[in-house]
Amino acid sequence: MRLRSLLAAGVVALLGMTTSAAGTFTNPIKRNGPDPWLQYHNGAYYLATTTWNSTITMRRSPTLAGLDAAADTVVFNLAGRANGCCNMWAPEFHLLDGPNGRRWYLYYVAGQNVADYNPTQRLHVLESAGTDPMGPYSFKADLGTDWQLDASVLTVGGRLYLMGTYGGDGAGQSNFIQRLTNPWTLTGSRVRLSSPTYAWERQTAPVNEGPEPLYHDGKVMVVYSASACWGPDYKLGLLTLTGSDPMNPAHWTKRATPVFQRSDANSVYAPGHNGFFKSPDGTEDWLVYHANSSASGGCDMNRSTRAQKFTWNADGSPNFGTPVRLGTTLPAPSGE
């Protein structure tokens, strides 16, 4: 019996050399994972990130630590779509009620296969056949006919709104909002949600982008990315719906200071393009984002996906803390 115990302990020790300890994880959770979107659903984490090619891929794992080694599964191929075949960025999948029942709607950015691809980037949406985040998916709609990025969906009073990023009106790259009659159909005009007005939103370039919904204790908020993604000072800002109408710019209040930014002490630069997810037991709130490990890092596929738990301030606003150094052992989300 003594020998058997020693052998078992040796196996555990050997496994511990190659996997995270039970109940912990370390960042990054995906090494080449810009623009991450992560959700926990029916016992597993699902992660999608920018591929910069003609595929949309997703990873699945029962633990956060397991995402790093999980396989990328192609959930949709864009090849053959004339106005959105290539350069896939910023995928997000939202479980929404629509005319076809409860489905996942996967929003993404893609453009044409041309030398100067950036002006051709547009918003698009897929619909799942059922309630599996990995699909299968079918193409549902193009969302707009001009340059737009970073689609997300806001829900207020049972109504859906598409948020996105647009830069064609001389105010710098800005966030906009527009009504949806269903998850794939826009109605009315888009309205400006935020523009880069503060100095910390204009470092290297004037940018507001990547608006993401956040809800807490009846408060509706939007967290967005600010300044140039190709500089070290890319960071997160906060909007709060202080009125009742999300389509009225006067009903939104922008916080005057950023809520998440670089940490030179922890070698984390350009933390941004975030999302939110709940722990498996629903008791914790988590932030997922990408960042670089060098001040000279760029806006490319070398950005890595990272996650950390956050808390709430007394006024109901999020307290994201400081971005954690890569390799730091962190407790896994509660309920794993």
Rank of each mutant, 00 (worst) to 15 (best):
V156Y: 11
L193I: 01
L160C: 02
P196G: 09
S194R: 07
Q173P: 08
R179N: 15
S174K: 02
L160W: 07
S174F: 00
V156H: 10
L186V: 12
Q173F: 10
Y198C: 09
T185F: 07
V191C: 10
P196Y: 02
R202P: 03
N175I: 00
G188P: 04
G164T: 05
P183A: 13
R179E: 15
G170C: 01
G172I: 06
G168D: 08
L180M: 11
G158K: 05
L186E: 08
A199C: 14
G157C: 10
Y166F: 15
S195D: 13
G157T: 08
W184I: 11
T187A: 12
T155F: 03
R159H: 12
G188M: 12
G170R: 04
E201V: 08
T185Q: 04
T185D: 08
R192Y: 02
T187C: 04
W200G: 11
G158A: 09
Y198T: 14
T197Q: 15
G188V: 08
Y198L: 11
L154W: 00
L186H: 12
G158I: 09
L193R: 01
L160A: 01
M163V: 03
V153N: 00
R192L: 08
G172D: 01
A199H: 13
E201Y: 03
Y161A: 01
F176W: 15
V191D: 08
L186Y: 14
R202D: 11
D169Q: 13
G168F: 01
T181A: 13
P196Q: 05
T187Q: 11
G157V: 04
T165K: 07
I177R: 00
V191K: 03
G188F: 05
L186D: 13
P183Y: 12
P183C: 06
Y161P: 05
R179M: 13
R202F: 10
L186C: 10
W184R: 12
S195C: 10
R179H: 15
L180I: 07
S174R: 01
V153R: 02
P196A: 07
Y161D: 01
L154Y: 00
Q173K: 11
G164Q: 07
T165V: 06
S189F: 11
G168H: 02
D169M: 12
N182P: 09
F176P: 09
L186T: 13
G188L: 07
G158E: 12
R202L: 05
Y198H: 13
F176D: 01
V156T: 13
T155K: 02
Q173N: 11
T197P: 14
N175M: 02
G170P: 04
T187R: 07
Y198W: 12
A171C: 14
L193E: 02
G158S: 12
L160H: 04
V191W: 02
S189N: 11
A171E: 15
Y161T: 06
N182Y: 07
L180T: 08
Q173G: 02
S174M: 03
E201Q: 09
L186M: 12
G158V: 03
G188R: 05
S189T: 12
T165H: 04
A171D: 15
T181P: 05
N175W: 00
G172L: 02
L186R: 10
Q178I: 09
W184M: 14
T165M: 01
P183L: 06
T185C: 11
A171S: 15
L160V: 03
G158F: 08
A171H: 15
Y161Q: 05
A199T: 15
L193H: 00
R202K: 15
G168K: 00
T185A: 07
T185G: 06
G158Y: 11
G157E: 14
P196L: 04
